[in-house]
Amino acid sequence: MDQDERYLDLLANIKALDMVVRGLFTRWAMEAPDPQESAFRMIEGMIGSLHAITEDATPEQVAVVSRIEDHLRAFGKNVDVRLRP
């Protein structure tokens, strides 16, 4: 497998995991008494955990955590849309 194929394989793997996680979060939230609040709590909890690891982080690590937070917030909006009545 050459570099391009490995890169495409990595992207496909990431997208597949993304789809699984989105489905699981939506399902878990739907099983809660207040689905939107449950999803919000789970995602905000993950974001809070991210910030805890940036105390002694390098600038590169801080930049990555910032991007992860952006993706989690976008994910939260997506889950919120799916859970609207």
Rank of each mutant, 00 (worst) to 15 (best):
V20K: 11
V21Q: 14
V21W: 03
T26H: 11
R27S: 10
R27N: 05
W28C: 06
M30L: 13
M30S: 15
A32M: 09
A32I: 06
P33G: 05
P33C: 05
P33Y: 05
D34L: 08
Q36I: 12
Q36D: 04
E37R: 06
A39G: 02
F40D: 07
R41A: 12
R41S: 04
M42P: 06
M42N: 03
M42W: 12
I43K: 00
G45E: 01
M46W: 11
M46C: 08
M46Y: 09
S49I: 07
S49Y: 13
L50W: 01
L50N: 09
L50T: 02
H51E: 07
I53H: 11
I53Q: 10
E55N: 11
E55P: 00
E55S: 09
D56C: 13
A57Q: 07
A57I: 09
T58Q: 11
P59K: 05
E60H: 06
E60K: 13
V62Y: 03
V65K: 01
V65T: 12
R67H: 10
D70L: 02
H71T: 06
H71Q: 05
H71V: 04
L72F: 15
R73P: 02
A74I: 01
F75M: 06
F75Q: 08
G76T: 01
G76A: 03
K77F: 06
V79H: 02
V79I: 15
V79A: 00
D80N: 06
V81S: 08
